[in-house]
Amino acid sequence: MTRKTDQTHQATDGLVALLDAADRLPGAGELRARSYDLLGAEPGTSAVDVGCGAGRAVAELAGRGVQAVGVDASERMIAIAHGRWPDADFRVAQAYALPLAGASVDGYRADKVFHELAEPERALAEAGRVLAPGGRIVLVGQDWDTIVVDSADPSLTRTIVHARADLTIAPRAARRYRTLLLDAGFTDVTVEVHTGILNGPAALPLLTGLAEGACSTAAVTRGQADTWLEEQRARAAADRLFLALPMFMAAATAP
């Protein structure tokens, strides 16, 4: 294994750990279940989960009797998914070129994916290609500019949140879901907001990621990041931490 490959695997494994932690947060299971309901995930239907990660949603959809396919651009991620769910169907592919025939699935789901896409319109055109007429699409994700954190230094907090957002390809993609879906020709577009509230140590990995991201861009100094994180750790220990993370869920019907 080359050094570059090893670093890529380490980065992917780190992402899997973060995704696993997110899946364990309060309300995460209910949020996924709501996305399946909006998808119309019933026995005998079919669906593709784009950006499937380690495959949990694909396994849960299969548990509902759905013929589910998981797609991810990362070979390492797909290997992990295969290891966890050996009987499921996982494939390496980009959101812009899905390994599916036209009009071949009843549902398309993408959870925490579109903020990583530089060309969301292209991805939605591909979604429209693979969806059968009347099929359902569900997009789930956070708007990286709308993370709310209680802090003694609101100005520094705003700087940290926005600096971390700017590291993302499309940090405000979620607020565009409705417009993107309408412009792509989808109908019956709805948008829901489900806000997760975190008050304890479970929020610290996310807060650390925000601070480290801001520090990496020199938006804040190392000392400012450490001081901010120390305050958040103290808040968590004293049951005074408050983090609100709105998750946007858009659903629509294929023409």
Rank of each mutant, 00 (worst) to 15 (best):
M1Y: 07
T2L: 00
H9A: 06
A11Y: 09
T12N: 11
D13A: 12
D13S: 11
L15T: 11
V16S: 13
V16D: 15
A17L: 12
L18M: 15
L19P: 03
D20P: 03
A21G: 15
D23V: 03
R24D: 15
G29Y: 03
L31Y: 11
R32Y: 12
R32A: 14
A33F: 09
D37L: 06
D37Y: 00
A41N: 07
A41H: 09
A41D: 08
E42K: 12
E42T: 13
A47S: 10
A57P: 10
V58H: 11
A59M: 10
A59K: 14
E60N: 13
L61W: 01
L61V: 04
A62V: 14
A62P: 00
A62M: 08
G63F: 07
G65R: 13
V66K: 11
V66T: 13
A68W: 13
A68H: 13
A73C: 05
E75S: 07
R76T: 15
R76Y: 06
A81R: 08
G83P: 05
G83H: 10
W85L: 11
P86Q: 11
A88R: 15
A88G: 15
A93S: 12
Q94M: 05
L98F: 03
L100I: 01
L100T: 04
G102R: 03
Y108M: 07
A110V: 07
D111Y: 01
F114M: 15
H115I: 05
E116H: 15
L117N: 10
A118I: 03
E119S: 03
P120D: 07
E121Q: 14
A127E: 07
G128L: 04
V130P: 02
V130N: 02
G135V: 05
G135H: 05
R136C: 00
L139D: 07
G141N: 11
Q142D: 09
W144L: 14
I147K: 11
V148P: 01
D150C: 05
D153T: 03
L156P: 01
L156H: 07
R158T: 14
I160E: 10
L167H: 05
T168W: 01
T168A: 03
P171D: 01
P171T: 05
A173K: 06
A174W: 00
R175Y: 03
L181A: 02
L182I: 02
D183A: 12
D183S: 09
F186V: 01
V189T: 04
V189E: 05
V189S: 08
V193Q: 10
T195N: 02
G196A: 15
L198S: 04
N199H: 15
P201S: 15
A203G: 09
L210D: 02
L210Y: 09
A211S: 02
G213I: 04
A214R: 02
A219H: 08
A219L: 08
T221G: 12
R222K: 06
R222V: 07
G223W: 08
A225S: 13
D226G: 01
D226R: 14
L229N: 04
L229V: 05
E230N: 12
E231R: 10
A238W: 07
R240C: 11
L241G: 12
A244S: 15
L245K: 13
P246I: 09
P246H: 12
M247Q: 14
A252N: 03
A254V: 02
A254N: 11
P255Y: 13
